[in-house]
Structure formats: structure tokens, C-alpha cells
């Protein structure tokens, strides 16, 4: 569960990136975060994960406040950033083991998970090589595996599907489903409306730092009686803004 209350963020005292944002992501749901470029998705995610500080407002993950109790809050989630170019000098497996150590994963658990994840993501032949030698999509896979290896309760992913091949993309979506079925939470941003339509229980649409809509896709369709496709609804919502 993730909860944001009256969260604000301004960059350099000028760009209001997030404007009095309220959002609640429940246990057991896949939540999609939609919005055009520069809407404030990454900024919101960075505040949830403790990467940047909020100007005001509070954020809790599984009821743990990220400001007040950062370490405990950070133990609740796993994060996939939008830029997969991290730890390029480490070997894939070294990175996975680093994450396992940081999150205190037992020796037996990590071995089993690394084994099965590298099989499922078809990375068995690559994990022994430096991440520097990976393609963009392989780098994304290793970052996702780095999250799965410590099996966090909440998944937070910033555009996880761009760059993945169809098979891996399907696999990730399937894993999101499995994850939420056991009562856990998935929160991810995306530009791909079809993906949102297919797997999200609820979505929020953000533009210029403000939430324009939050609810199930059914509700969205009811709201826009006239429009037939999600794309048209999205364009109408975000286009009217300015």
C-alpha cells in the first residue's frame, strides 16, 4: 500500500512538478500511472522512493513514513528506475548478489531466486558478464531481477516495459499479476495505454503535476461517454489542460 497526502514539489523554486497530489494505492492492486512527457510521473516516484525530498505533504509505504522512518520504508519496496544504466562495472550476478546482501536475503533464497530468474529472463549466459556489455533491454532485465531477488512487498517501476522484447514484457506483466494475487502491490508508470488497459486494476492520469483522473478503467469509460477508445479519452483529458 502506498499513500500520498498533499504532496508538493517544485524544482529550483520555479517548475511546479507536483501540485498537491493525493493518491492511495491499495494492497493487491496493479496501479498504472499515466500522463504525457513532463507530467510529473518520475518526480512523484522519486519522492515515494526517497530519492528526492518533498516540499510538503507526507508519503507512507505500508504505513511507514519515508521521511520519518526511511530505512524501514525502503525495506518495503523494490524500485526499477527509468534509466537502466546502473552499476555498469559490476557483473550482472555481482549486482544481484549486492542487492541480496543489502536487503538481507538468505543465502539459500538468493541462490534459488537468481537461478530461476536468470532462467525465466533468459539471462543465464549473460549474468557472468559485466553489465556494461549488455544491451539496453538486457540492462532493464537485470535491474528488474535485482528487485525480484529481494522479493519486496511493493513494486515501484518507472516505465518498466519500454525496451523489453515481447516475451520479457509478457513475462513481467505475468509476474505483476502473480505478485498482486498474493495481496501485494504494484505501482508503475507507463505511456503505453494498451498495457494499462490490459493489466491495471486502477489508473491515475497526471498532467502538469495534478491528478486529472483516478479510478478503474470502467469508471473512466463511464466518465467519457462519447469516447470509444482509451487513447481518445487520454488525449482529451490531457489536451484540455492548457
Amino acid at each position: 500500500m502506498i499513500e500520498l497526502r498533499n504532496v508538493n514539489k517544485t524544482y529550483n523554486g520555479k517548475v511546479k512538478a507536483v501540485d498537491n497530489l493525493n493518491l492511495k494505492i491499495e494492497k493487491g492492486e496493479i496501479f498504472g500511472f499515466l500522463g504525457p512527457n513532463g507530467a510529473g510521473k518520475t518526480t512523484t516516484i522519486k519522492m515515494i522512493t526517497g530519492i528526492i525530498n518533498t516540499d510538503s505533504g507526507s508519503i507512507t509505504i505500508n504505513d511507514v513514513d519515508i521521511e520519518k522512518n526511511p530505512i524501514e520504508a525502503k525495506r518495503q519496496f523494490g524500485f526499477v528506475p527509468d534509466d537502466p544504466n546502473i552499476f555498469l562495472r559490476l557483473k550482472g550476478i555481482e549486482y544481484l548478489n549486492f542487492m541480496a546482501d543489502i536487503y538481507n536475503v538468505s543465502s539459500a533464497d538468493r541462490k534459488e531466486r537468481i537461478d530461476s530468474l536468470s532462467k525465466r529472463f533468459e539471462m543465464e549466459n549473460a549474468i557472468g558478464d559485466p553489465i556494461q556489455s549488455y544491451s539496453h533491454g538486457m540492462r532493464q532485465k537485470i535491474v528488474i531481477m535485482g528487485v525480484l531477488v529481494h522479493n519486496p512487498n511493493v513494486w515501484i517501476l518507472d516505465e518498466p516495459l519500454t525496451g523489453l522484447d515481447p516475451k520479457s514484457s509478457f513475462l513481467l506483466k505475468e509476474m505483476m499479476r502473480e505478485h498482486t494475487q498474493s495481496g501485494k502491490t504494484v505501482f508503475f508508470s507507463t505511456h503505453v495505454l494498451e498495457v494499462a488497459e490490459k493489466i491495471c486494476d486502477r489508473v491515475a492520469v497526471i498532467n502538469n503535476g495534478r491528478i486529472l483522473f483516478c479510478g478503474t478503467l470502467e469508471e473512466m469509460k463511464n466518465h467519457f461517454k462519447g469516447e470509444s477508445s482509451l487513447e481518445k479519452m487520454f488525449l482529451e483529458m490531457t489536451g484540455n489542460e492548457d
Partner: peptide, 24 residues
């Protein structure tokens, strides 16, 4: 910016060695 890569499966003993658990 090329770096050495072998693209082969790690042997069981290599795997065991790299995945040893350490303190944070």
C-alpha cells in the same frame, strides 16, 4: 567502452562463489 564478455553459463562452483552472502 567495450568490456570483456564471454556469454557463457557460469559453472556451479563459480555461481556458488559469487553468490556467497556477506554483511551489508
Amino acid at each position: 567502452s567495450e568490456s570483456g564478455s564471454r556469454r557463457r553459463k557460469l559453472s556451479r562452483s563459480e555461481f556458488e562463489k559469487i553468490t556467497a552472502s556477506r554483511s551489508v
